[in-house]
Simulated assay, not measured.
Amino acid sequence: MSNDAKLVRMANQIATFFHSQPAAEGPQGVATHINKFWEPRMRRQLFDIVDHRSGEGLDPMVLAAAPLIKRPAPSGSTDHPPAA
């Protein structure tokens, strides 16, 4: 299984849990979980799937949560502003 397939499966498992919760809480719950527990590299990979592959394979709830997920800095850039 490729890294992308594993990441899609993990994101969809989170969404599956939140499908059992009130509908209004679903996207926020998915986003909160991903923001708390996924490292920037994983979130970067998720946004690559969302942005460049139309969210291929992702549960619609994961796609609804995407605007609420913290978008990490592009790979190779620093997360800190330059020193003054």
Results as ranks from 00 to 15, higher is better:
residue 47 F to K: 04
residue 21 Q to I: 06
residue 2 S to H: 10
residue 36 K to T: 06
residue 64 A to R: 10
residue 39 E to H: 12
residue 71 R to M: 05
residue 3 N to E: 15
residue 63 L to H: 08
residue 70 K to Q: 15
residue 54 S to L: 08
residue 47 F to T: 03
residue 11 A to T: 01
residue 36 K to N: 07
residue 58 L to N: 10
residue 76 G to R: 05
residue 22 P to M: 04
residue 7 L to M: 06
residue 84 A to D: 12
residue 10 M to E: 13
residue 14 I to G: 00
residue 70 K to D: 14
residue 42 M to D: 08
residue 15 A to K: 09
residue 83 A to L: 14
residue 63 L to F: 07
residue 54 S to M: 13
residue 74 P to W: 02
residue 21 Q to D: 14
residue 16 T to I: 12
residue 31 A to P: 00
residue 2 S to R: 13
residue 82 P to N: 09
residue 84 A to Y: 13
residue 51 D to S: 05
residue 61 M to Y: 13
residue 28 Q to D: 01
residue 37 F to R: 12
residue 6 K to T: 10
residue 54 S to R: 15
residue 56 E to F: 15
residue 61 M to E: 11
residue 84 A to N: 14
residue 77 S to N: 02
residue 15 A to Q: 11
residue 80 H to W: 14
residue 38 W to N: 03
residue 31 A to W: 06
residue 22 P to T: 05
residue 14 I to C: 09
residue 27 P to I: 01
residue 9 R to W: 10
residue 77 S to I: 07
residue 19 H to L: 12
residue 37 F to M: 14
residue 79 D to E: 12
residue 75 S to F: 11
residue 46 L to E: 00
residue 37 F to Y: 11
residue 2 S to Y: 08
residue 29 G to Y: 06
residue 83 A to R: 13
residue 49 I to C: 00
residue 48 D to F: 09
residue 53 R to A: 10
residue 80 H to E: 06
residue 18 F to A: 06
residue 14 I to A: 02
residue 45 Q to A: 11
residue 50 V to R: 00
residue 61 M to D: 08
residue 35 N to I: 04
residue 66 A to R: 02
residue 39 E to K: 07
residue 18 F to Y: 01
residue 20 S to I: 12
residue 48 D to W: 09
residue 10 M to W: 12
residue 56 E to Y: 06
residue 32 T to I: 02
residue 53 R to F: 07
residue 42 M to H: 12
residue 14 I to E: 02
residue 34 I to R: 02
residue 21 Q to F: 15
residue 1 M to I: 08
residue 52 H to C: 09
residue 9 R to H: 13
residue 74 P to H: 01
residue 57 G to E: 13
residue 15 A to E: 00
residue 79 D to Q: 13
residue 20 S to K: 13
residue 43 R to G: 09
residue 7 L to S: 00
residue 18 F to R: 05
residue 3 N to P: 15
residue 9 R to L: 06
residue 83 A to H: 12
residue 39 E to P: 08
residue 40 P to R: 07
residue 72 P to E: 05
residue 58 L to K: 12
residue 57 G to C: 03
residue 83 A to T: 14
residue 62 V to N: 03
residue 26 G to M: 00
residue 3 N to C: 05
residue 3 N to G: 14
residue 16 T to S: 04
residue 80 H to S: 07
residue 57 G to Y: 14
residue 78 T to H: 14
residue 23 A to P: 00
residue 10 M to H: 11
residue 1 M to E: 13
residue 45 Q to I: 00
residue 36 K to G: 13
residue 19 H to Y: 11
residue 42 M to T: 03
residue 78 T to D: 08
residue 44 R to W: 08
residue 70 K to L: 15
residue 9 R to S: 05
residue 39 E to D: 01
residue 66 A to Y: 01
residue 82 P to W: 15
residue 34 I to Q: 06
residue 51 D to A: 07
residue 55 G to S: 10
residue 81 P to Q: 04
residue 76 G to H: 12
residue 48 D to K: 07
